[in-house]
Design a protein around this nucleic acid. Structure first.
Lengths: 86, 86
DNA sequence: GAATTGAATCAGTCATATTTGAACCGTAAC
DNA sequence: GTTACGGTTCAAATATGACTGATTCAATTC
């Protein structure tokens, strides 16, 4: 489910953007020029995958990469159970 | 394209199996109980993504994880450009 | 409290990927 | 050379996911 969420160009761009710093949806729209409702749809998929977190700030909703998102993405790759030092 | 290839349950299982050791298609079928032609289709997707390599051995075709597959999968994740020591 | 703004939701359409059944190809065995 | 086996390819059907337009909601501003 995590990989399914990441393996979409739009959602990948969202994650790459949020990996730099949290942003409100309106700023995400500046960097990812798609319809607002479509962006909202993809953000929902990322939310349900637990890869991003949200917090409302007035009229704006800030999105941030979940703290464990990088780890969970790496762990989701096949063969991720090896190559870990105790 | 790499992530698209990995983000499918069947292909994920194929990659996880091949991460242990190379196998011919018939042995893959033992571990992944699906129709032969369907498995062949997914193997083709993995081939085109460059994640697996093949070699014919008599009537059998052996599949193996591409040597750079783990690296390429990790590099395909968003935010993969950071945390690399020169 | 009416209008505006940022964002989310909904139903419907469209595109794409997966699955199926059949036919096909290369190699080996008879 | 014909049969059997491992695997692939093909066309058609199905399912899944992404996109659109319209509506709705919550918070703010006037």
């Amino acid at each position: 489910m995590v990989l399914q969420a990441v393996a979409d160009p739009i959602r990948w761009a969202v994650l790459a953007t949020l990996a730099q710093s949290p942003r409100c949806v309106c700023r995400l729209q500046d960097q990812i020029p798609i319809a607002g409702n479509l962006l909202s749809y993809h953000l929902k998929v990322l939310r349900e995958a637990g890869l991003v977190t949200t917090s409302r700030r007035g009229r704006w909703v800030d999105y941030a990469l979940a703290h464990d998102a990088p780890e969970r993405m790496r762990a989701a790759l096949p063969g991720a159970q090896v190559a870990v030092s105790a």
